[in-house]
């Protein structure tokens, strides 16, 4: 890879690195924390940092928002940022909130069934249920589920 660690290079890539760090913070919350609501918030952080990555790719230095003057008399000297990532992310945000709501609804149902939203407790209860079923039906039902 032919790149040099010049100051320009570092500042040109600092934004990608920042978003990677944010993304990993979100991933850490999802993997390491047991509370389901907290996991959803972590997923949101992850998601938002992906959005930032996309939007930062569409930015052009010295550019402005991709909205023309009302009279459509476009000054050829004005640079506009790339509108395509904006469109993709715009729809992704709204779809993201809809899927987040679906996840939260699942959490509410889990709370009602298991009376807890901690992953460890849920696993414990499920293991107890499996053992109870095995004790009743014996191993002939196919062994431990």
């Amino acid at each position: 890879m032919g790149f040099e660690l010049t100051q320009e290079y570092i500042f040109g890539h600092l934004n990608y690195w920042l978003f990677s760090v944010l993304m990993m913070t979100g991933l850490y919350i999802v993997v390491a924390k047991g509370n389901l609501v907290k996991k959803i918030v972590g997923l949101n952080i992850f998601q938002t940092s992906v959005f930032m990555l996309y939007i930062s790719m569409g930015k052009v230095t010295g550019g402005t928002a991709p909205i023309f003057p009302l009279d459509m008399q476009i000054d050829p000297d004005v640079i506009y940022s790339n509108p395509l990532p904006h469109v993709l992310i715009l729809t992704a945000i709204v779809v993201g909130i809809a899927t987040t709501a679906l996840g939260l609804a699942l959490i509410v149902r889990i709370q009602e069934e298991f009376n807890t939203i901690e992953e460890d407790d849920i696993l414990k209860i499920e293991r107890a249920i499996t053992q109870a079923e095995n004790a009743i039906h014996g191993e002939s039902m196919g062994g431990p589920a």
Partner: peptide, 12 residues
Amino acid sequence: DFSPGGGFQAGV
């Protein structure tokens, strides 16, 4: 059509 906005934002 003329300023930031559209169906998604307005719906929210």
